[in-house]
Amino acid sequence: MKPTSHTAPIASLQYLMRWIINSLVIFVLPSLMSFSCDSLPMDQKGTVQRIAETHELRVGLVENPPFVVRDGDEPRGVEVEAIKSFAESQNAHPVWTWGGEQKLMKQLEHYEMDLVAGGLKKDTPWKSYVGMTDTYTGTEVIATPPGENQLIKRLDQFLADNRPEIEARLTEATNGQ
């Protein structure tokens, strides 16, 4: 009886070490070897890859100044400018579609759009159906298709990197009204 009570913690330590090493060998090493950290997480429907192949970023726009402004058919606004630069950074050009929030969100949910912009708030009821970036400033987010985690990651990174410019443009637009 005595020996078991003394060896048990050592045995479990060995077991845990083996488990950690196995986990490293099975999961972490292959992911480090075959994927650079940039390519993870992957999209579940390959949106980023499709954008890279077609050079098209399909963007749904809901009019909502100063984030999305409709000037004839030409879009302007803080989010529009940000998405233009993002598309450029992805070696693509935006393809704009004007519409109502309901219709565009449905299309986004079914991967018929790549982004929907329109000064959406982070607590929008759509959040359980589509993906969202983090708030790029204040409470505003840009919607993505559900589960396209690589797209979200790239857009989040872009918005974070360009935050000072976006904020400056937003202040300017608000003062100009």
């Binding site: 997480p41 589509v130 993906g131 970036t133 983090d134 298709p145 559900p146 985690n149 990651k153 989040d156």
Partner: peptide, 13 residues
């Protein structure tokens, strides 16, 4: 399709 976003941590994403 579960969406898992990025968060800000130590100034990076």
């Amino acid at each position: 399709h579960p969406t898992i976003p990025t968060v800000e941590l130590f100034g990076g994403r």
